[in-house]
Design a protein around this nucleic acid. Structure first.
Length: 209
DNA sequence: GAGTCTCG
DNA sequence: CACG
């Protein structure tokens, strides 16, 4: 998979925005997202402090990221269906590996893909992705549908954040010295996107195990 | 133990 | 909206 003429924005050392990298595969990705949702439906999860998250989520892969009263963790079995999460669709796997390589991370082989659906009012506070085994492996985040403001900070929650608008088809890859940086997104504003309607979908690819 | 959270 |  090649990305000619790709605009690359360096957000921080080890963190890049590949502008529009997913545009040409967006419809395929969305179609596969629907297949995953058909097998493992979107659901609202509780944070360990007892508040519901504003996004709806599901997963595909050998393990899926879940949150409940007991904490954050990766699970092999979807607690909603009590069977394994759907496999990561081939187009997801190929695309994630390709964009990671384009960002300088060769041989990225994700075993988990978190699917978050944002509706108007959904947001994601500053957090670290630190439930994975190997922090040498990067995070690949794909934005589809409505735009949202991305906040990317440092390894301390109090570090100041850089803000960048993520548009349909944008891909952020972060790893290396940025792997444990705090990040999040602002509140999704209501809108209409030709492919996703009033929603934004985010795919987060990780090597969890 | 803190926390993808909320609150002041 | 940023901070804590």
């Amino acid at each position: 998979m090649l990305f000619p003429e790709l605009e690359i924005v360096e957000i921080a050392p080890g963190a890049v925005l590949l502008r529009g990298a997913a545009e040409t595969v967006a419809e395929e990705l969305l179609s596969q997202i629907q297949s995953v949702i058909n097998a493992s439906p979107l659901r609202t999860v509780m944070t360990p402090m007892g508040k519901p998250m504003s996004v709806q989520m599901t997963n595909c892969g050998a393990v899926g990221w879940v949150s409940d009263r007991t904490g954050y963790k990766y699970e092999q079995i979807d607690p909603l269906t009590n069977v394994r999460w759907p496999k990561i669709p081939a187009v997801f796997q190929t695309f994630a590996t390709a964009v990671a390589a384009r960002a300088g991370f060769e041989d990225f082989a994700p075993d988990a893909c978190l699917i978050n659906r944002y509706a108007a009012g959904s947001k994601m506070g500053l957090h670290q992705d630190r439930d994975e085994q190997d922090f040498m492996q990067p995070i690949v985040s794909v934005s589809l549908g409505l735009p949202i403001l991305f906040n990317f900070g440092g390894v301390q929650r109090s570090d100041k954040t850089i803000k960048v608008e993520l548009q349909h088809g944008d891909v952020v890859v972060f790893g290396g010295v940025s792997r444990l940086c705090f990040h999040g997104v602002g509140t999704l504003r209501r809108g209409e996107h030709p492919l996703t309607g009033g929603y934004r979908f985010n795919l987060t690819f990780r090597r969890a195990c």
